[in-house]
């Protein structure tokens, strides 16, 4: 009798106890640091002037949330930072693919990407202020910080693509569309997704830093700076918390969307 080995099904759910344990561990670690923060704020915070407590941060956030100005600033910064991110993803992907295909492109662009990676945000902001209005500063700065990350991610993904599958496609003379869909994209996606998730965090950091230096009106960076000069430390903490939450949630959304795109694009052959 022919043995057909019983294998786990393709979409086997992860064992729940492990997931729950990991969640509990993370929640425990977060709770530990919140307690440390609370104790530090109570002992060293000088009534919230130097270090606001977690509760003080939440109170400040609750005060900011219902105001139109808060949402206006979030929309202003998010639109520009995400525009820079999306532009960088498109250009980074195209340049990364071109550099993997043509050596000349790689030789030309590798030093530029390394230079961009090494340059401090402040230098970029000052230069960008000479070239563009402060309102569009975060577009330029988030673009320049995301570009080398996506470029490197796509180039690495292409390098990691299975050479044996590429040979197979050559022998069977697969059309380019099928090679892209079923061989190149699945090869590139893991490293591309990873770089996009990392870049999403970076673009918020660099974008808000640029706004703090360039002070465009109605931006999150401007609000942070105002909170600093007026010594309203709880607002600084509240805005920082908002930026962290926005960055993390958008990073998670981007990763999910990319996974969905991969499953739709590379999952099934139209016979």
């Amino acid at each position: 009798m022919i043995s057909t080995t019983a294998l786990p099904p393709a979409k086997m759910p992860r064992p729940e106890p492990n997931k729950r344990r990991r969640l509990l561990q993370t929640a425990g670690a977060v709770a530990f640091w919140v307690v440390v923060w609370q104790v530090a704020a109570a002992t060293l915070g000088y009534g919230g002037l130097f270090l606001t407590s977690p509760l003080g941060t939440l109170e400040a956030l609750a005060r900011l949330l219902p105001t139109a100005d808060f949402w206006h600033r979030i929309a202003f910064s998010a639109l520009r930072i995400l525009a820079g991110f999306l532009l960088a993803v498109v250009f980074g992907a195209l340049l990364g693919a071109a550099s993997a295909r043509w050596k000349l492109v790689r030789i030309l662009f590798n030093p530029v990407m390394q230079l961009i990676r090494a340059m401090p945000v402040a230098s970029f902001v000052i230069l960008a202020l000479l070239w563009a209005s402060s309102a569009n500063l975060s577009v330029i700065v988030s673009f320049t910080h995301v570009l080398p990350v996506v470029y490197a991610g796509v180039a690495a993904g292409i390098a990691d693509t299975d050479r044996q599958l590429i040979e197979m496609a050559k022998v069977y003379r697969l059309p380019l569309s099928r090679r892209l869909r079923y061989i190149w994209l699945p090869g590139i996606f893991p490293s591309f997704c990873e770089s996009c998730a990392a870049a999403m965090g970076m673009c918020w950091k660099s974008g808000v830093s640029a706004e703090v230096i360039g002070l465009p009106d109605h931006s999150v960076g401007d609000a942070l700076y105002r909170a600093k000069i007026t010594l309203t430390t709880p607002d600084v903490f509240a805005w920082t918390l908002v930026i962290v939450l926005l960055s993390a949630s958008l990073s998670a959304i981007a990763t999910r969307l990319l996974r969905l795109a991969r499953n739709c694009l590379c999952g099934e052959v139209r016979a």
């Binding site: 044996q164 599958l165 040979e167 197979m168 022998v171 069977y172 003379r173 697969l174 099928r178 079923y182 061989i183 699945p186 590379c266 999952g267 099934e268 052959v269 016979a271």
Partner: peptide
Amino acid sequence: RRIAAMFQEDRLCPQLTAADNICLTG
């Protein structure tokens, strides 16, 4: 000549089912 080959290695697209791998080149 149009060639179909079986290599020493399996060289199947890992994300596709066996039938989809066959349809891909079929």
